[in-house]
């Protein structure tokens, strides 16, 4: 446990030194999206008020997904790259599983921080526009953020250990891009009833559960998916990716 906490401390210290850069990387996109779709377009009467209320939790979940995946994926590429910096961690008195779990926890902290900073930033940008009902319910929001962070980071661990770093660009284009578009970030899952049974296909996308969790916690007036399905999806995907990610981490590190 000493080694686990020491490794976590190291990651948090290093991340806080690079905080400005990391936050800029995570927040630029959602903040600009909010600025355009939540502020400019409504003033031009090109999008409706409902869209803005739907978008806020969705953008939170996208922010957390990106921060969590990048927070694990980027360090992992130096860790597993030519210089094998990971060996220093693997030689610490801690199990290989411990090292990989520590990476997930560090990534989750990164993701959660980004999500919690994104929320007020977005609310501030939409401040002057009327009709947005954003009421964070902290008792739901905090566990939702924690689970979403763990899900994003373990997804990052799975991708980072199974995809070669040179394909990272492709990964963002063909995996994360589609996940974000079909992740119920810009529309509520309940609204997909218009698609008939196709709406269940969306449940293969882990981001859907993150978006719906944020929706439940931040915009109470917008309907969200049934809570058991929501919690089941979040926990289920987190467990799945932790298992897959830690396994392939062990395969990649101990030859």
């Amino acid at each position: 446990m000493t080694a686990f906490l020491a490794l976590l401390r190291r990651d948090i210290v290093v991340a806080s030194r690079n905080a400005l850069m990391l936050l800029t990387a995570s927040l630029t996109q959602p903040v600009l999206v909010v600025l355009v779709f939540g502020n400019i377009l409504p003033r031009l009467h090109l999008v409706s008020d409902e869209f803005r209320a739907v978008m806020v939790p969705g953008l939170m979940s996208i922010t957390m997904l990106m921060a969590g995946v990048q927070g694990v994926l980027m360090p992992l590429s130096t860790d597993l790259g030519g210089s094998r910096e990971v060996d220093e961690r693997l030689l610490a008195p801690i199990s290989v599983l411990g090292v990989s779990i520590q990476k997930v926890v560090a990534g989750a902290i990164h993701a959660g921080t980004a999500g919690l900073i994104a929320l007020p930033a977005m609310m501030l940008l939409m401040h002057k526009v009327t009709g947005v009902e954003v009421h964070p319910r902290w008792a739901l929001l905090l566990p939702g953020v924690v689970l979403s962070g763990l899900l994003s980071a373990s997804f990052g661990l799975t991708l980072g250990t199974q995809v070669q770093p040179r394909f990272a660009g492709l990964l963002f284009a063909v995996v994360l891009g589609p996940l974000m578009l079909f992740g119920c970030a810009y529309y509520p899952w309940m609204g997909l009833a218009v698609l008939g049974p196709v709406k269940y296909v969306f449940l293969l996308n882990p981001l859907v559960f993150m978006s719906e969790a944020m929706r439940m916690a931040v915009t109470p007036d917008v309907p969200h998916m049934p809570t058991p399905l929501l919690v089941g999806g979040l926990v289920g995907f987190t467990v799945l990716f932790v298992v897959l990610g830690t396994r392939s981490f062990a395969r990649r590190t101990i030859l």
């Binding site: 000493t2 020491a6 190291r10 690079n18 130096t78 030519g82 210089s83 910096e85 610490a92 008195p93």
Partner: peptide, 23 residues
């Protein structure tokens, strides 16, 4: 064989963090 020093820490921190890992 490959130089795997933690590039995000200073030399002194490389040593003290290693000490932390080992309690």
């Amino acid at each position: 064989q490959t130089r795997n020093l933690d590039r995000d820490l200073t030399v002194r921190e490389v040593l003290t963090y290693h000490g932390r890992y080992f309690g």
